[in-house]
Design a protein around this nucleic acid. Structure first.
Lengths: 257, 257
DNA sequence: GTAGGGCCTAACGTCGCGTCAGGGTCAAGA
DNA sequence: TCTTGACCCTGACGCGACGTTAGGCCCTAC
């Protein structure tokens, strides 16, 4: 560790393909503080700093905000391996999304060739900024080729647009009520919050896939990590993402005791 | 055409997975002006508007700025088919970039498993914000599986980091001198500018692939279209991208006459 | 006829840097 | 030894692409 040379900002910048200003910025906000300084105040980056920078750039490329990245890397520090695996999963997901978009372009090509118009509902496949029901289906896809996933796929494939709207509405209602609780200052491990967490679990269990309290907690962990989820949550009240996660965890404890 | 229903902002927003505010914004800056308004001033979007929105969102997903998108779509309006094909190419390029990043993560996984450190120069593969020599090699990759491409690949694979630095410096020098000309107010179709364009062509021809004036012009067309190129150019003087393109075009005319 | 959801414009806020401005540092050559 | 040019530092303002109120009109539904 650290056997290799230290680098100045400029060197790191050209290595990583970012500007010096970017590194200054990351330092200022505490996201990437170089592990050393020279006598004259020059920033000095060690190998570990480069590793961290790589992960920062990777997550930014995937659209995460800098504060979310900070939290993710703090969590990731405990287990490098599974953090890397998680990053891999996110990348593979993007691969698939990109392929969906390509198929959309192919459909557009076919449509223009035939002089027809495309189906408006499938025009934007893969391009939606964040449709959280659709995403929820993808989330547990990451949980592997589990029976749960296949079951989910089997069920959701039968839903029409109207079903999706209704299901989404039902899910949103739960979050809205949790937001109220949060605003009222109710505790996340209080009975009301736990009841709503349980309701959410059953919602998933019913419409998507069998969802045990344990799996539910794992899914909830993603809520605070993913920027698209987070943007959605924070709209409904600052700190809601973490609040929901706590409530779900509390509900799991309750259900297993 | 236009046989289908008109949509309000909210409908379009949920179809495309963007916010109403985003549509307002696109309208304000003239990027996507709905083709109609109701009596009461409501925006009304027709099918053609949705198509345009799809392309806007696709290009944004790929990192283009809104003004660049506007220009691209203006150009694209002449030939829908080749515009779609170009979009497809960009997406495939991203697919490949994502795969390179994944391979990087795999290397990181291997390194941590073995307790080693990664090679610093290959840590950021696929993550660089814009290395323009490397990009230049990719640009003509889009020109198909031409002999030129294979030749380029054969040549560039032999270059080391030092070579790249030198080649990049050489290329930058040409642009710097063009920027001077632009600042001095020299004409893009003047002798000096054309000479520099010719120098640039030979630069590519020597280090990358056989580059005729015609191919050179086609590559130059990408300069004004791609955000990464553009960012690079504008740093060296406002309007440089367009200036370079003009000079190259003028040089082509000169060389064929 | 009024309540609730959707639409309008206007205008300020935010995030991730880009871009000066003003000034030390350092290795190389005259 | 002195100077020159490349690189580093810390502010601090600017910008693109929206997010987010704020204040008010429209419209369907009970």
């Amino acid at each position: 560790m650290g056997t290799r040379q230290l680098h100045t900002v400029g060197e790191v910048a050209s290595l990583a393909g970012v500007t010096v200003r970017t590194l200054h910025h990351y330092d200022r906000i505490g996201l990437l503080v170089p592990s050393g300084r020279s006598e004259s105040g020059y920033r000095l980056y060690a190998y570990a700093d480069l590793e961290r920078l790589r992960e920062i750039r990777l997550l930014r490329e995937l659209g995460f905000g800098l504060d979310a990245i900070g939290r993710l890397l703090d969590v990731a520090a405990y287990d490098r391996r599974s953090a890397l695996v998680a990053q891999r999963d996110l990348l593979v997901e993007r691969l698939e999304r990109t392929q969906r978009i390509i198929r959309g372009v192919d459909r557009a090509l076919k449509a223009t060739a035939e002089g027809k118009e495309m189906d408006e509902t499938e025009m934007f496949e893969g391009l939606e900024e964040f449709d959280h029901t659709r995403y929820e289906a993808e989330v547990e896809q990451r949980w592997g080729d589990s029976e749960a996933y296949k079951e989910s796929k089997r069920r959701t494939s039968g839903y029409g647009k109207a079903d999706w709207t209704r299901i989404k509405k039902e899910g949103d209602a739960v979050f809205a009520r949790l937001a109220e609780l949060l605003a009222r200052g109710a505790r996340a491990d209080g009975r009301e919050a736990m009841d709503l967490a349980e309701e959410h679990r059953r919602h998933i269990d019913r419409w998507f896939y069998p969802c045990s309290p344990g799996l539910h907690r794992q899914v909830a962990a993603l809520y605070t990590a993913d920027p698209r989820f987070e943007a959605y949550f924070e709209k409904h009240g600052s700190g809601l993402a973490g609040y929901v996660q706590e409530a779900i965890r509390a509900n799991e404890v309750r259900s297993t005791s």
